[in-house]
């Protein structure tokens, strides 16, 4: 995983994240609106989209749904002020990787790296796993 799309009108909120991503070999691209994000996603494969829950032209939930419709393999992270319970209620079923706070920092980037490593380990374990025939 190395291509990350950042979606929020204020680019500054990603400043710390971008530094952490860059130090860990991730490439980022920024855009301010959901429409632009979908335009970019249609042309280029991103591994991860980090988006704000309220964009100027679309809610975060709607954008996550649109991303899934284009490519369900693409992971999404939502920047949100919702409580854990409220977030679960709004985004349940959409397979959102995790919630980020309104001003994500270095610790959030590390949490993401750890989580991605865990998913990667599980994904590697399924290589070559076959069913056992019942006699």
């Amino acid at each position: 995983m190395n291509q990350i799309l950042l979606v929020n009108p204020e680019k500054e909120i990603f400043k710390t994240l971008e530094l952490s991503f860059s130090e860990n070999g991730f490439t980022t691209q920024w855009t301010g609106t959901a429409e632009n994000a979908l335009h970019l996603i249609a042309k280029k494969k991103f591994d991860l989209v980090i988006l704000h829950e309220q964009l100027p032209d679309m809610t975060g939930r709607k954008l996550v749904e649109a991303v899934i419709n284009l490519n369900a393999m693409m992971n999404c992270i939502v920047i949100s002020a919702l409580s854990k319970e409220e977030f679960h209620e709004v985004y349940e079923g959409l397979g959102v990787l995790m919630q980020f706070p309104l001003l994500p920092g270095k610790a959030d980037a590390q949490r993401l790296f750890d989580h991605l490593a865990r998913i990667s380990r599980i994904s590697n374990q399924i290589q070559g796993v076959k069913g056992d025939r019942i006699p």
């Binding site: 397979g95 995790m98 599980i122 796993v129």
Partner: peptide, 9 residues
């Protein structure tokens, strides 16, 4: 396999 948040794929 083990199920983790966002690991739907």
């Amino acid at each position: 396999q083990e199920h983790v948040q966002g690991g739907c794929m």
